[in-house]
């Protein structure tokens, strides 16, 4: 669907985007993660034809974005991180304006606006003035605006920024609906756990460079060479520690109050062997789990690594 190869953007001597490459497949939700000033918004604006690239290639459904930026505007919808709305327009008039740009008229336009308002849960606000809406509602209206021409790709720059927790949950739900409708979504956010839940793939960008890109599980493997297992026992903690040390693929065992945490090099088969050994020797195991590294950990690890 979208392929970016060696994208560079210079502002004077500053390199805002440095040889960035990524690929987003149809139907994916691609999370774009990075600290402030990493180059996320710049990259998104280049994709949407709102900034020129210094060098590099971007293709969307085989169309060269840099060469044929007019064509791609039909194919994508953009929601910026900061945006304003026209104060003196009602909600339906706001959407009518953008629909008219795409020559959507008459009953088709009315139906489309009703559908979009239903999708973003603003049906009750159809006749309200845009400036009377809360921030969360304005964000949802802007999302509806980006959908008027039924684009295949949505580029959403921090769509949940400034929203309260409830509004965030609602936005997440809308994005899930869009995914089920077959939309491909590129989304940037600072709320990393939410991205991890929502995204099929992520790309971590820092200082204009793509540090890691791929599915969340792939990235976990790239970043963590070892898995971590955690065992909670009701009794016989020392005995359990001795049993675990017998296995060569277990190392760096930490003994807590009633838990054991260890590095683990192996697959599910090795894991079941450890559990079986503990149970066979009458250790009262309350829980046995693999600790999953979360997106926040990955983000901190890879961006820290870059600083070093």
């Amino acid at each position: 669907m979208l392929t970016i190869k060696n994208l560079c953007k210079k502002y004077g001597r500053n390199l805002a985007v440095n040889n960035l490459s990524l690929e987003v497949r149809p139907g994916e939700i691609y999370g774009f993660v990075g600290p402030n000033g990493a180059g996320k918004t710049t990259t998104m604006k280049i994709i949407c034809g709102l900034l020129s690239a210094t060098s590099g290639d971007i293709t969307l459904d085989g169309v060269d974005v840099i060469r044929d930026y007019k064509k791609i505007k039909e194919k994508l919808g953009y929601m910026p991180d900061f945006f304003g709305v026209y104060d003196d327009l009602k909600v339906h008039e706001y959407l009518e304006f953008y629909a008219s740009i795409y020559h959507i008229k008459g009953s088709r336009r009315s139906k489309l606006i009703d559908d979009l308002l239903e999708l973003v849960d603003l049906t009750g606000k159809k006749e309200a003035y845009v400036d009377s809406l809360s921030r969360g509602m304005k964000q949802r209206l802007c999302l509806a605006r980006s959908l008027v021409h039924n684009p295949g790709l949505l580029v959403l720059d921090e769509p949940a920024s400034g929203m309260d927790p409830r509004a965030r949950v609602e936005m997440k739900e809308i994005l899930r609906n869009l995914k089920s409708m077959g939309k491909t979504i590129i989304i940037s956010s600072h709320i990393l756990p939410e991205l991890a839940e929502l995204c099929t793939s992520i790309g971590i960008i820092d200082k204009g460079r793509m540090v890691v890109s791929g599915s969340v599980s792939d990235i976990l493997q790239q970043v963590y060479s070892k898995q971590v297992i955690r065992v909670k026992v009701l009794d016989k903690l020392e005995e359990a520690a001795l049993i675990m040390r017998e296995f060569p693929f277990v190392d760096k065992l930490n003994v807590g109050e009633n838990t054991l945490q260890a590095g683990f090099e192996g697959g599910e088969a090795e894991m079941s062997r450890v559990l079986a050994a503990l149970v066979n020797r009458q250790i009262p195991v309350a829980s046995f789990s693999q600790l999953e590294g979360n997106l926040e950990d990955i983000f901190m690890k890879v961006t820290k690594g870059e600083e070093e």
Binding site: K45, C48, L50, E74, P80, F83, I101, R145, H149
Partner: peptide, 9 residues
């Protein structure tokens, strides 16, 4: 509001 118009057709 300008970017929103510029990214349309």
């Amino acid at each position: 509001t300008l970017d929103l118009v510029l990214c349309t057709r």
